[in-house]
């Protein structure tokens, strides 16, 4: 049971209108580890998380979480399953009309009948874990971006989930915040025995904590392996991404007609 993957994505197809986003993605996310899903912007990494969370339905293929097919569940069963998941959104997504304390208490209040004193203790524990116990009376508008994300993290783990999905946790953060978040994700994973999925395109930070890495591009898994093995992988697209080269198999230019012809094209001029 320990060895069976917690999340299993098989043959996933998804398209938005005409645009194909995934064509046959296969992922196996092991229990109790940090798995990173990386790839250039616009490859649908956030979409992948939404498919795993059951907010979007795939065109074909399935997503199993702990043996349950997410998209075959009834609405009620899906909401029950979601209690076992936490998700950290790119923007934090704190409820702007509630204080920091109430934001973290929110999942506890709606899913449990705990007495107020116990809710208070739990919330303070979670806030202590992210280092923001002192900020509990602030409103989300008064927080910096990094603090908001840490509060959101505290909220995501409020119900002690088994699976935490991180959507671009490092984007738009200063180096200190990035460092704090990297450390937090690592610590929480080890201390609580969570299964973590980190979706990101910040290579250094992600590789430093991930146990296993998937690289997605062009709607498919391009490479996967441990961080050490990934660097030496000889797929040119992967190496372009990992080394951050501006041009290569993933082109610098958006598809366009030939530059020379385009610039001399007199018909197009006013």
């Amino acid at each position: 049971m320990i060895d069976s993957p917690f999340v299993e994505v098989s043959n996933l197809h998804f398209s938005r209108g005409e645009k194909v986003i995934f064509s046959g993605v296969e992922l196996q996310i092991p229990r109790g580890r940090i798995t990173a899903v990386m790839g250039p912007s616009g490859t649908g990494k956030t979409t992948l998380l939404k498919l795993v969370g059951g907010q979007l339905a795939p065109d074909a293929g399935r997503v199993l979480i702990d043996g349950q097919d997410v998209h075959a569940l009834s609405r009620k069963a899906l909401f029950t399953l979601r209690r076992r998941m936490g998700m950290l959104f790119q923007s934090g997504a704190l409820f702007s009309d509630l204080s920091v304390f109430e934001n973290v208490a929110f999942p506890l209040r709606v899913h449990t009948d705990l007495p107020p004193t116990m809710i208070r203790d739990l919330v303070l524990m979670k806030l202590q874990a992210v280092g923001l116990r002192g900020a509990r009376e602030l409103m989300p508008a008064e927080l910096s971006g990094g603090m908001a994300r840490r509060v959101a993290l505290a909220r995501a783990i409020a119900l002690d989930p088994e699976l935490v999905l991180y959507d671009e946790p490092f984007v738009g953060q200063d180096p200190i915040s990035k460092g704090v978040l990297v450390q937090l994700i690592k610590q929480l994973n080890d201390a609580l025995g969570l299964t973590s999925v980190v979706v990101s395109h910040d290579i250094q930070e992600t590789l430093s904590i991930a146990d296993y890495v998937y690289v997605i591009a062009d709607g498919q898994v391009m490479a996967h392996g441990t961080p050490d093995s990934l660097d030496i992988d000889d797929d040119p697209r992967v190496s372009q991404f990992v080394h951050g080269e501006p041009d290569g198999p993933v082109p610098f230019h958006y598809p366009a007609p030939d530059y020379f012809h385009d610039i001399l094209n007199l018909e197009g001029r006013p």
Partner: peptide, 18 residues
């Protein structure tokens, strides 16, 4: 609309609240 744009509605759904 602002709640939707800042993903508050989505995160509410993920927490398991309609």
């Amino acid at each position: 609309g602002l709640m939707k744009a800042t993903e508050q509605l989505t995160s509410m759904e993920m927490i398991g609240v309609d």
